[in-house]
Design a protein around this nucleic acid. Structure first.
Lengths: 234, 234
DNA sequence: ATACGTAAAAACATCGACATTATTGCATTG
DNA sequence: CAATGCAATAATGTCGATGTTTTTACGTAT
């Protein structure tokens, strides 16, 4: 922490490496670095203004999350994408989400239900703005689904869920990059959300699970068909 | 790879860091480093005979897998254990395994069934040796369950499964360290295995899922009751 | 003349030594 | 006895040495 006279540098107490992890993850998830692209140390040093040690540390962390791959003495590459992996991630995500919901209905309490309604409200109020500020809408949409899943009350499971969300969001972002236009196709179906809430509050686990599978699988179908993802060949 | 005259140095093609990741993971999983223990660089340097750079890299990878934690500028510690986390991991693992089995029954083909029978045979032949070579028996036991899960045909899901297995095996090892004696309590119940196989081959998903939940949850009940794990306080 | 193979050179990744910065423990003082 | 400052310890980051991979340039053979 460094302070000059009266200015306090926003020196996040975090180590330099931790900050890089976040930035680098963001850059991969948003597609700034393309799938399969070689990550040259010099370029990364310039972009993030740090030495190689923090970089190697950051890259090592992303390694386990499967966002980058390393070849023996040939450095790091952005994890390549493929149709198969995309479908597999979305399918797994759908199952995990269904699992969370099933458990949440069993275990969920009043606070859980309240949280869902609150998040739903915050999301629905923003319906008009989907096209204006899709970033923020996605944030609220995600918050809504997280409020539901949270009811499973299992940190371990929720962590798995989060990791899958991140992997999926990479494909989502790659797709959005190519199809700026009609991003609303993605998951703007408010009717499904209402049906889901109804099923949850009534404790209808089976139909809730079916609904969420539908809800999460449609994007992957959209992604699969889209013509813009030649990148998905390898 | 480096060769002198007639001697070929066993220069593992792998980078030094990769090797350390494996060794370090082993040492944490087997309890050589105790939960919550501070991992001092000097000690690690001595033990693995490498510099700090590979060490930091290795630790960074374990960070994401939640086997170590890092405190701001205070270095790395072995991830602490707790009864709650243990129960949560085992419960999640049971659900994930049930999920794998459910999908496997839907999708599994003849090859899958054959793999199960082969692994079951390999395992059962070793029944007598449980007490002689528990290491090897655990290996075969695990191979059996993996053969079943593999039928879900989803790399992503299987990876989640593996990660949970590793986390659970840490608790398992900590327990074994304290209770050397009757390790057979753990998962030696051959009857359950046979019931599981029967259910799988008949395609009875519901009972297969119920069986696997039972099978995976009993160890956690044993762990919970065991008196030797005072360490599990924090 | 072109294509292929080989050898030299440039680029790069990996690792360890050193310097910097932060934290912890202890002593000294109010 | 508490608080502050100083010294020892430890973690983080930068840099340079070493070995490996890739590219380029050149020579030879078809």
């Amino acid at each position: 922490m460094m302070t000059y006279s009266n200015v306090t540098i926003p020196d996040n107490g975090d180590s330099s490496a931790l900050k890089v992890v976040g930035d680098l993850k963001q850059d991969i998830l948003t597609g700034y670095f393309e799938p399969g692209e070689k990550l040259k140390m010099n370029r990364l040093k310039e972009r993030y203004q740090v030495g190689v040690s923090p970089l190697r540390e950051a890259l090592s962390q992303l390694l386990i999350e499967q966002l980058v791959v390393v070849e023996n003495q040939r450095g790091f590459k952005v994890h390549p994408v493929s149709r198969e992996e995309m479908l597999d991630i979305y399918a797994t995500r759908a199952e995990i989400e269904a699992l969370c919901i099933g458990l949440a209905i069993e275990k969920g309490d009043d606070e859980w239900e309240a949280g869902i309604l609150a998040a739903a409200h915050t999301m629905q109020k923003f319906s008009d703005m989907i096209e204006t500020d899709p970033q923020e809408w996605e944030r609220r949409h995600q918050a809504f689904h997280t409020a539901i899943a949270r009811g499973c009350n299992s940190p371990t499971l929720l962590q798995v869920r989060r990791s899958l969300y991140e992997k999926a969001s990479r494909y989502r972002n790659l797709w959005l990059k190519k199809n700026m236009a009609n991003s609303l196709v993605f998951d703007a179906n408010q009717k499904e959300h209402q049906q889901l809430i109804d099923a949850l509050l009534k404790g209808e686990g089976d139909s809730a699970r079916a609904l969420i599978r539908q809800h999460l699988l449609s994007p992957s179908r959209a992604l699969e068909k889209t013509p813009g993802l030649e990148a998905l060949s390898g």
